[in-house]
C-alpha cells in the first residue's frame, strides 16, 4: 500500500527558538499585538510503500530518528494517511 506522510519537525520544548523569538518581536512593530508562543519548524511530505499503516509509521519514525530530525534539539509529529 502507498501512504502519504507528513512530517512536522519542531524544536523540542525548552530549546530556545531564535527564529520564533525574532518573529514574535517583529509582530508588534507591524501592529499585531497579543501574539505569543511563536515556534518555527519545517514540514516534509513524501509517500512510502508499506504493508500497512503501522509498518509505514515505524519506517517513518526510524527515518526521522536517523536523518530528518536532530534528536538532540528537535522532534517530529508524524501523520500517515493512505494515499
Amino acid at each position: 500500500m502507498t501512504f502519504s506522510v507528513l512530517v512536522e519537525v519542531q524544536l523540542r520544548s525548552g530549546i530556545s527558538d531564535p527564529q520564533g523569538q525574532t518573529i514574535e518581536r517583529a509582530l508588534p512593530t507591524l501592529g499585531y499585538e497579543g501574539v505569543s508562543g511563536v515556534r518555527v519548524g519545517k514540514s516534509m511530505r513524501f509517500t512510502v510503500e508499506a504493508a500497512d499503516e503501522a509498518a509505514a509509521r515505524a519506517q517513518v519514525d526510524e527515518i526521522c530518528q536517523k536523518v530528518l530530525t536532530n534528536p538532540v534539539i528537535e522532534d517530529a509529529i508524524i501523520t500517515v494517511d493512505p494515499a
Partner: peptide, 17 residues
C-alpha cells in the same frame, strides 16, 4: 561531528539570528 554523534550537543541558529 555533532550530527555524526562523535561529539555531544547540537549547533542551533545564533541567538539574534
Amino acid at each position: 561531528l555533532t550530527e555524526t554523534g562523535l561529539l555531544p550537543g547540537a549547533l542551533q541558529k545564533n541567538a539574534g539570528l
